[in-house]
Design a binder for these strands. Structure first.
Lengths: 341, 341
DNA sequence: CTGAAAGCGCTTACAG
DNA sequence: CTGAAAGCGCTTACAG
C-alpha cells in the first residue's frame, strides 16, 4: 500500500502530528534537526499526502472546478479560443498548488452537485450565459469562490473577469469609419439585454452615433459563430446588400466564413467589402488576406481570474467592480477604404 | 454546513448504513418502502455524497487524471486537435460517473505525485513522447489504469490507443503516386526510432518502395508543427527544390504554412506543387484551396481510451494488442497531377 | 432487510 | 518544541 503519515512517523520515531507539521511547512513548530530528518524520510519513501484525507479533515480541498457548458450529452463547448484560457488557468493554479477539475455541465443542477461533491474551494464558470449566472443562489453554491469569465451578470455571488467588449467594438467600428465606411453591418450570434455580444453591439451603435451615421436595423444580422454560418451570411450579403461596404463581426471564425461567402459570390475583401474579426485567434493569420481583428489578452484574463479567486479565498471582500481587461485592434489586411462608386 | 449521510439517517429514522446502501443503489439490501422514503429526503435536502470521504473509505476515487506535458512553467501543450479529445474524454467519463482532473506535467516526478495524491483510479497520458512512456515503472504508477494516447511505447504498464499512422501515410502517399508524382517530399517534426511521426515516415517510405521510386534522403525535412515553420519550409522548397512536385506533411497546420510559403515565392498549389496534410482539423476547410488531408476519428479514439480503462478497472487483463483506429483520406483541393514539364 | 463497529489518512484545537 | 484525542463523511466486513 501507499505510505502514510503514520509510516513516516514510525520510521522517524516521532508523532504523526510532527510529521504533519513538517510536511505542511509549519516551521515554527518543529526543530530544524527533526525537520531535516523527517524530510529525508519523506523523500526516500516517496511519501505524497492524500488529498482526499486532507480535504476531509481540513477546511480546504485545494481543488478548483472548471465548469463548462455541455449541450445535452454532447461534448464540451470549448472553442479554440477558450482552450488557451483553460491551459492558462491550469498553469496558474498549479503554481499555487491547486488542482483543476474539468467538468461539463449539461443541466443546471450539476453545478451544485460538482461543487458539493468534491468540496471545491473555487470554481471558474467558462462559457455560460449571463442569465445562467444570474440564477445562481447562495444556498446552491455554498461557500465556493466563484468566478464567471466574460460575464456581465449582476449576480453579487460571482466574481467577474472579462475583456472590454464595448471598447473592442468601438475600436473596430471607429477604424472602419475612419477608413470612410458608412454602410457598416454588424454580424454576431443572437444576444440578450446583457452579455458579451450585447456589449459589442452597443459599442458598434455608439460609434455610429458619434459619427452621425444613422443606425439601420436592417444592417444587423444574427449569425452563429461558425464558419458555415459565416459563409452563408457572406453569400446573402453579397447578393442582397450591395450597399454594405464593411462588416464588423463578433468572431474570427465567423469573419473567415463571411470572407469565403463573399468570394464565392465574386466579391473581394477588402476590395469590395472590408471585414473586421474578433479574438485574434491563430486562424487570423492563416487566411489570405490576413484578418484585421480585435485582440484580447487571454493570458492576463486567466491570471486575473485566479488572482480574484485567491483573493476571495484569503477572506477578502468581493471587489466593487468587475475586472475589465484592455483590448486592442490588430490592423492587418481585411479593412481598407471603400471602393469609389 | 453541508448535509451528510448522518443527517439523512436521522431524519429518516434509520441507520447511516441503510442510507448509504440506498444512495449507492444496492437495491437488494433495502426494502422498497424505506428506499423511497430515503430517496425523497435525499432529494429534498439536496444531499450530495462527499467524494473525498468516499475516496478515502472505499477503494475507488472515481477520478481520472488527464496528464498533459507542460513545458517548464509554460502553459499546457494542447493543440487544437487535442482539445477535441479532451472534450470527448470528459463526456465519456461523465457518463460513467467519473470525474476528470486536468494536470500539466512539467517534470516527470509530477506524474507519480498526481497519481498518488488524489488516489486516481486511472489516468490518460496525452501528448507524451514514447520515451517518456517507456520510462514509467510499476512502483511509481501503482495500481492506476494508465492509457497512453498515440503511443507506440512497448511499456506493458500502459494501455495504448492510436490511429493507424502508418496506414494514413500510405493512403496519402499512394494518392500522390497515383496522381503521377515521383518527387514527393516528407515534412514533419524530428522523430526517433518509434512514435507517431516515425510510423508516418515508414508509411511514406513503404509506398515509395512499393512503386519503385527510389528513396531520397534529401527529400525529407524536419519541420516543427507550426504555421511559421511550415511557411519557412515552403519558401525554402520553392527556391531550392524545383524538382519537388508534391509534399506529404504530418500536420494540417504545417501544410497550411507550407502552402503560404510556396505562394509567397510565386508557386501555386496544386498547380505547381501538391500538398497533403494530416488531421483534417477545422482549418483544413478554412483555407483556399481546401486541404486534402488524412482524417482520424477523434471521438472514437477518446471512447476507446475510456473503454480500455474501464475494462482494466473491471479487473480484466491488459489486451494483447494496442488498439489502432482506422484512418481515411479526405480528397479536397490541394493534390492534383504534376504539371507537364 | 437493518445496524453497530472499525477504519480510511489526515488536521484541528488543546495540553504539556 | 512535541503529542494524545477527536473527528472529517464515508464504506467495508460482519452480525443479527
Amino acid at each position: 500500500m501507499a505510505v502514510t503519515l503514520k509510516d513516516i512517523a514510525a520510521e522517524a520515531g516521532v508523532s504523526l502530528m510532527t510529521v504533519s507539521n513538517v510536511v505542511n511547512g509549519k516551521k515554527a513548530r518543529v526543530s530544524e534537526a527533526t525537520r531535516e530528518r523527517i524530510l529525508r524520510i519523506v523523500k526516500d519513501r516517496g511519501y505524497v499526502p492524500s488529498a482526499s484525507a486532507r480535504s476531509l479533515a481540513a477546511r480546504s480541498s485545494r481543488l478548483v472546478g472548471l465548469l463548462v457548458p455541455a449541450r445535452d450529452e454532447a461534448s464540451l463547448t470549448i472553442d479554440p479560443h477558450t482552450v488557451e484560457v483553460v491551459g492558462m488557468l491550469e498553469r496558474e493554479l498549479r503554481r499555487l498548488d491547486y488542482h483543476l477539475m474539468l467538468r461539463g455541465i449539461a443541466h443546471r443542477a450539476e453545478i451544485t452537485e460538482a461543487l458539493k461533491s468534491w468540496n471545491l474551494d473555487g470554481a471558474v464558470l467558462l462559457g455560460f450565459q449571463d442569465a445562467e449566472i444570474d440564477r445562481l443562489k447562495a444556498d446552491t453554491i455554498g461557500d465556493v469562490a466563484l468566478v464567471a469569465m466574460d460575464s456581465y451578470s449582476a449576480n453579487p455571488l460571482a466574481l467577474e473577469v472579462r475583456s472590454d467588449d464595448f471598447g473592442g467594438a468601438e475600436l473596430a467600428v471607429a477604424h472602419l469609419v475612419a477608413l470612410g465606411h458608412t454602410r457598416i453591418a454588424f454580424a454576431g450570434p443572437g444576444f440578450a439585454a446583457t452579455g458579451v455580444v450585447r456589449q459589442r453591439f452597443e459599442g458598434y451603435r455608439t460609434v455610429l452615433a458619434a459619427n452621425g451615421i444613422a443606425f439601420d436595423e436592417s444592417l444587423v444580422s444574427t449569425v452563429e459563430t461558425t464558419h458555415a454560418d459565416g459563409l452563408a451570411y457572406g453569400r446573402r450579403l453579397a447578393r442582397e446588400r450591395p450597399d454594405v461596404t464593411a462588416v464588423f463581426t463578433t468572431a474570427d471564425i465567423l469573419a473567415i466564413g463571411l470572407i469565403e461567402g463573399l468570394a464565392v459570390e465574386g466579391r473581394s475583401v477588402p476590395g469590395d467589402v472590408s471585414v473586421v474579426g474578433y479574438d485574434d485567434s491563430d486562424l487570423a493569420v492563416y487566411v489570405t488576406p490576413k484578418l484585421t481583428t480585435v485582440a484580447q489578452d487571454l493570458s492576463a484574463k486567466a491570471a486575473e481570474a485566479v488572482r480574484l479567486m485567491m483573493d476571495r479565498l484569503a477572506g477578502n471582500d468581493r471587489p466593487e467592480q468587475a475586472t475589465t481587461l484592455e483590448v486592442r485592434l490588430i490592423e492587418r489586411g481585411t479593412a481598407a477604404p471603400p471602393a469609389r462608386r
